[in-house]
Amino acid sequence: MEHTGGDAARPFVERARTTFPTVVDEHGVTSTLLGFKAVPNGVLVDGDGVLRWAKYGGFSIDKPEDVAVVERFLGGGDPGPSPVQATPYTLGPVERELVDTKLRLGRLLESLNRRDEAVTEWRAALRLDPENLVIRKQIWAARHPERFHPTIDWDWQRERLKREREDEIAAGICGPDGCPVPWA
C-alpha cells in the first residue's frame, strides 16, 4: 500500500519484484481511517476483518522482532500487544478532519501543478499536527525533490527533522515533549 502516487511507487515495486498486490492511497484514506502519522507501517488483519496488531512508523522486514510477529500471526498465532505509539497530544475530531482535508487539498493542488499553494496547505496542516511525518515529508519532497530522486537521502531527512524541530521549539509551536496546544 503506497502513500504518494502510482508514478512514484512503480520503480520501487518493480525493483523489489513483489509477489503481493500493491495499491495506491493517494487521498490518504488509510491514514484517516487508522490515524497514523508516519510510515512505514505493518498492520495485521484477521479473517474476520478485525485489526489485530499495528506498528505505525519504523516497521521493517529487516527487523527480526517485526518479522517474528508477522510469522506468528500468519501461522495462526496471536500477534501479542501492539507497540505503544508515541502520542504527545491527541487532536480533537474537528482538528483531525481539518488536517486530513488540508493534506488532501494539497495533494489535489500539487496534481494541478499548483505546488506553492499545495505547500501552503501542508504547512497549515503541519502547524496543527507537528508530529505528523507524512505531512512533513510531503513538504520536503515538494521543496527538495533532488533529495528523493533517484535515491532517498535519509541522512538529509534526519538532519532536516532535527533542525525543524529545534526551530519549532524555539518558535513556541512545540515543546520538547510535543505540542500540547497545537493550534496555538
Binding site: 503506497e2 502513500h3 488509510t30 495485521l44 484477521d46 500471526f73 528523493f148 532517498i152
Partner: peptide, 20 residues
C-alpha cells in the same frame, strides 16, 4: 482495484510505505 472484503477469511499483512 483491490477490495479488502474479497480477502475475508484470510489473515493479512498490510505494509504501508511512501516513496519519501
Amino acid at each position: 482495484e483491490l477490495r479488502f472484503a474479497d480477502r475475508r477469511g484470510k489473515r493479512l499483512l498490510l505494509f504501508m510505505w511512501g516513496s519519501w
